[in-house]
Nucleic acid binder design. Sequence first.
DNA 1: GTGAATGCAAACATTTTGCAGGGTG
DNA 2: CACCCTGCAAAATGTTTGCATTCAC
Lengths: 159, 159
Amino acid sequence: MKTTKTASSKTDSHRWFTEELSKHLARKNLKQTKQRQALIDVFIELATHVSAEELHIAARAAGLDVGLATVYRTLNLLSDAGLVEQKQFSEGRFVYEIVEPGGHHDHLICLDCGTVIEFANDEIERLQEKVAAKHQFKLTSHRLDLFGHCQKVNCDRRN
Amino acid sequence: MKTTKTASSKTDSHRWFTEELSKHLARKNLKQTKQRQALIDVFIELATHVSAEELHIAARAAGLDVGLATVYRTLNLLSDAGLVEQKQFSEGRFVYEIVEPGGHHDHLICLDCGTVIEFANDEIERLQEKVAAKHQFKLTSHRLDLFGHCQKVNCDRRN
DNA sequence: GTGAATGCAAACATTTTGCAGGGTG
DNA sequence: CACCCTGCAAAATGTTTGCATTCAC
């Protein structure tokens, strides 16, 4: 019975996240519900790139009785609030990722075992701006995913 | 009535594409059919990023009686053959793009009017390799999409 | 108490698949 | 003439929506 998700063990970023959400809800006259709070707790504990279904399963495993529709609605809410980002690494389904206060990063994805490594590279970002400028674009965001094969000994070459 | 799609007006790249496909079909013991050939002709004439449904509509407009399932099957075939690439610019549907003999390129996408500009930047590619190497990855491919706003006078800020 | 949130099931959109008939090599 | 390809409709997948009920403020 996971008991770590309730109160005292909240990290700073967990607390920050919860506060940001509260602000957003207040701003939009939306309501703080048990499901929303709990889903976020579970999400933050998973602490990775999570699909709606995975979050649903994890939530139910944690004893929360929540429907898949609510998971989607909550993820969309968090997306609107700018607290999570919708990504797509493999075809046909989205994964969601918590937006950390500080920074943006890109992804390095192993095609064999599915491992996702996050990285940031200022030099690449600078070059992107240069490209955009050359075409008279004002950049708002970008997506850079590198696909390849990791060299981990336990990388499973199936999947 | 589009009459340009039939014979003499084939470009070099059109011809190259058709030949590559023939090779692939022969290699795999697959068959050359009217639909496949015609779909490719239509695809190449569109000459842009095309969704399965758009290609289907264009094909029917060109007088070809083809089912949507065949369009998908053909696009997947071309994908396997390495002649087209499946991309995803907006959520929920794929677009397909012809792979030109020479080169890879990335995309600059206007969020207002949907314009897609292709670009290539060796320096960025080199940095990507460097990032991958640092994490002991062997890179096979990547995806770089820059999103922003173009400054065209006729860019429609709706959509 | 009013309006928003939930759970369920039905609706949706896109892509895939099973099957019987037709065409290619 | 074997086997691939096609068209159609049904299935599969992932996400959204309508509705009656429940719950937060």
